[in-house]
Design a protein around this nucleic acid. Structure first.
Lengths: 210, 210
DNA sequence: CTCCGCATATATCACGCAGATATATATCCC
DNA sequence: GGGATATATATCTGCGTGATATATGCGGAG
């Protein structure tokens, strides 16, 4: 009986307005999809449980043809539970980063291969930035007086600063990789692997050396 | 039979030197723990399977008292499988961000509460940065001639740029939140929730408005 | 000297979560 | 008429985390 994060994402979405499970999925995709995802596999079971806990109430809207809409609405207890969670500190979790994992083992392949990955990543960041600018314009025009807008702009700005910094990192890394390609055009090397040592923290940077 | 990421993290670690499951866990913690985690619940089953696929070979080192060490070593096929994966593009995944989720629903609680979260986050970034500086010193001194070091420094630099940008974001956000507290000291408000609109992308920023 | 915590070491289980799929129907476009 | 798409609920498989079980040696606190 834990089921932590998703539970509060659902509660949070319902704090905005009553919704069906389907609505919640769409709302997540249309608002916080840059830093959050929810799947039906989570949403539907959670809604059932929230009803049992009296944090939401369910009303069924009959529809001709299409399946009935099961619309869920936050109760006072539900809102209070949400506010409670919003008051607790967000515990940072290590984010798995596939690009960095590949780069960490980069010596196993050619510098050109690694360069390709960084360039692809660069492209993705540019796309994200362009999108952020569009969204920002939308918020500043359509939601000028909405009391939520400062918070939406804050989450948006987070993404902006992030992408800008990562672009800077891409530039630096691409330069370094190009230099490595130039020096000695190393193809995908084979066996001459040797030991090596730690990067980053963990309790005292333990050496990987044998 | 998918089991993608963890599988290659294990293979990658074994490309550095032969290790036991226990060693792999420690090595991950002592090197890539800032952007990757592995749990025993993944490592041990994966090692078993890798043996079956002849990507690694296992030798048992008997020890008095302590359990036997099951040491796994990469085969040529195993290395080639790893290099294959290293050549494929890293698909970016949406990273769930609890802090941003809380801020997105920030209007549900006081600005002071949200400020507290940002400040805590700020503190964490400063700690990370300090740690990065230590690790960098270690690499530059102990691994000056290691061919891996350019790649380690690259992953390290990623973290550095990230944290710097996030600190900048914290400064900006804290300023905004303090201003909000000053304007009208809004305590945790209750029911007057109104609808609102989308932030961030997703297929065309769908409004959350009813 | 004894007990406690910690490191070594393998293994498994419960549960959060993602992605795919099943089912059913209406509408829009070709 | 047929296919794609949207609405809508529901479930299953498999990845991944964190906790726990089991067994033992070692170093330090009391």
């Amino acid at each position: 009986m834990k089921e932590t994060k998703s539970r509060f994402a659902v509660l949070g979405m319902l704090s905005i307005r009553p919704m069906s499970g389907y609505d919640i999925k769409k709302a997540v995709e249309g608002s916080i999809s840059n830093f959050w995802t929810e799947s039906y596999g989570q949403i539907y079971p959670i809604l059932k449980r929230l009803v049992g806990e009296k944090l939401v109430v369910k009303t069924v809207e009959r529809q001709s043809g299409k399946p009935d809409r099961h619309v869920y609405e936050l109760t006072a207890r539900g809102r209070s539970e949400l506010q409670d969670w919003l008051g607790k500190p967000a515990v940072p979790k290590v984010q798995r980063n596939e690009l960095l994992l590949k780069l960490f083992f980069g010596e196993e392949v050619s510098a050109a291969t690694n360069l390709k990955h960084v360039q692809e990543f660069r492209r993705a960041q540019l796309e994200l930035l362009a999108n952020y600018r569009l969204v920002e314009k939308g918020i500043r025009s359509k939601h000028r007086d909405d009391p939520n807008s400062p918070y939406w702009l804050m989450t948006l700005d987070y993404g902006t600063e992030l992408s800008r910094a990562l672009l800077k990192w891409c530039d630096k890394s691409e330069r370094r990789l190009r230099k490595m390609i130039g020096e000695r055009s190393a193809g995908p090397r084979k066996n001459p692997r040797r030991g090596q040592g730690g990067d980053k923290p963990g309790p005292r940077p333990a050496s990987l050396k044998r």
